[in-house]
Write a protein that binds this DNA or RNA. Structure first.
Lengths: 204, 204, 204, 204
DNA sequence: TATGAATGAGCATTCATTCAT
DNA sequence: TATGAATGAATGCTCATTCAT
């Protein structure tokens, strides 16, 4: 019965949400299944009706969260802005996740450790790759748009993919540093400074 | 007695060295005190004569390791090269740690989690700040050297600190992505591509 | 309604058959109710419509299986053979169960443990007694036939029951040793050797 | 230090004794490590200082018990008796274990299941083989003694090993039946009846 | 000071059983 | 009647920490 399947998916999401809420606050390995069950308002055993192990739950929870990111990433940018502005907005949106939920980085960081334990399962590799993928794709789009609109030099076309990887690396690294010590610098200022130099070098 | 105190410090370092060797290979939480004691050639209980808890040991070990990094960072660059070359070499040296020992990232990543649990203790904050400090300092030096030698534009002088933070953020983020999936890209190519754009925008 | 009751009995047998198939392969305590339900093509809860507990199911399943054994035991022997030959054939048939399905012994072994837990329920005692009963009965018949045909000495008539118990004990014990270590000896050779001595002492 | 090693062995035996006491009463899988620890008057974790797993403990406990059997088996028989008497005494001694501790059979029976799970580890095979070995050896000795003293026919010499296996099989099977239902027959009577026939066929 | 035996809190996971539908 | 989702008691095992020697 289709309705039943939907219910199952909803319940999975509920448990996943409860899990991620605690994972983010306390770390994956410091969170017990009992705690998750209590947060979700269900019995401990019920968790195992929906997830075969704690690892699977952690991966699913992370995956859901990535899905959410993917869905909201594109909406953060006004397509009619200049590519400069679009890039800046995208960076701001991405890092704003760190500002609003700095714990999320710790979660992903711990998750990678979890995933590496299970790396042999190819699907986890896919998951990790997906983490930055939508943002990379978005960056490529914006850069291409800038080229098309004669904002950016045409020579950069050959480096689009590489550049996207680098920009995502920068944003991730900045977020990582930020969560390590939020008082150390101002995110906006750093982003503006970075983009000033970067845009300066690709602008026509 | 002063000699006693010195002995105590030496022993702490020995335990710390043994600990970090295993931490880096297996992760902090997957390493037991017994294992560390065995590696250090001492009894399990003795560890607690020098460290009040596993957390304290982990933080101390990480701190020692950062000290070591600080000492070796400067030796990686030939001071008589052009600043372009110096920057490239510094980046290569920094990322080469990831290439040779990708586990190191996982270690830092897990460390941050440990530190966050104890964040209320201000000294840990200091520790985190120190992680990137020597590299940042080094970058500032190279950039300043480039300005002095008329390789780089003088206007960048006002952004030295911010730029250093951004460059370190990039290197960290690239390393993070690399350890997540070493097949995804080629570190050297990414660094070259990044520096081409960056240097292009600051060169005279 | 009588038909309903019959249906109920049929369903019990179906579940029981599914259960025993898995019990024999994996052991009773390593078999879950879910597994049995799946094998029987019914829902987990349905099992409890027919059996009040796993224990009851195990006992019922074993009982059914003994019934089956009872039905096949007699067919294994050609009534027109000499009693010597009949006895040898019966032993071979009995032990051949061990050869073909050594797991069966493990099953009975575990079953006895199950039964002992519930020993206070007299009906289980009856069940255990029945396990060897048909073979004992068969042995008594063969021995009596041998006496009647003047193959065996008449004095043994007073020991028929006791002898039957002993012979079944021997066959069981041999099977038990065989399943513990099938490479240790050759079943046929042991049986022939045993019967040579036994028949030698009762032959006229 | 040697004394320490002795202490460790003593403690292992203490835990093993506590374990076997409960194993025999409740079965291996129905006995929890906590229970064993409580019986032994130690903490739960301490059990794992001496045994790496419950399986290992069960096997060690069984092994100790077999050792005990091996030590007492030979003392049960008066070497100056006739071989008839010696054989009878050995059987009585062996079965008396069942009479005094009928639960022991259940324990060994469950143990075999445990061992089969771990059969790949060759040492367990050895353990099982050892269970009957001392009694078999003893039987061979008595039979040989009977041949030498002209009580038994010389032709049986070629069947000593096979006969020993069969006699042990009989005793085991009788014990198995006895523990299944102690009221069903009288052990002594069955043994006497069995030996009467057996001795009759090998006596000179 | 150094030790390692002892500890028990804590955890992931299983599964017989219940019960609302 | 049939179901399977929900449950939580129970369990084997780990390991940081303590403490008697």
């Amino acid at each position: 019965m289709t309705p039943k399947i939907i219910d199952k998916e909803i319940k999975k999401m509920e448990i996943s949400s409860a899990a991620i809420k605690i994972f983010i606050n306390k770390g994956i390995s410091n969170t017990s299944i009992s705690e998750i069950a209590r947060e979700a308002g269900i019995g401990k055993g019920t968790v195992y009706e929906y997830f075969s192990s704690k690892d699977e739950l952690a991966i699913f929870a992370a995956s859901s969260w990535i899905n959410l990111l993917e869905q909201t990433s594109y909406d953060s940018v006004n397509k009619s802005d200049t590519p400069d502005k679009q890039l800046k907005d995208l960076f701001k949106h991405t890092t704003s996740n760190f500002i609003k939920h700095p714990e999320i980085i710790s979660f992903f960081i711990e998750l990678i450790g979890y995933l590496q334990k299970n790396m042999h399962q190819n699907k986890h590799l896919q998951l990790i790759k997906r983490i930055g993928a939508p943002v990379r794709k978005h960056i490529v789009d914006i850069l291409q748009y800038g080229i098309d609109k004669k904002f950016f030099r045409e020579e950069i076309a050959k480096d689009l993919e590489k550049t996207a990887i680098n920009l995502v690396a920068f944003v991730d690294g900045l977020g990582l540093q930020y969560v390590s010590d939020p008082q150390f610098f101002n995110l906006d200022i750093q982003i503006n400074c970075f983009l000033d130099y970067f845009l300066n070098s690709i602008r026509k």
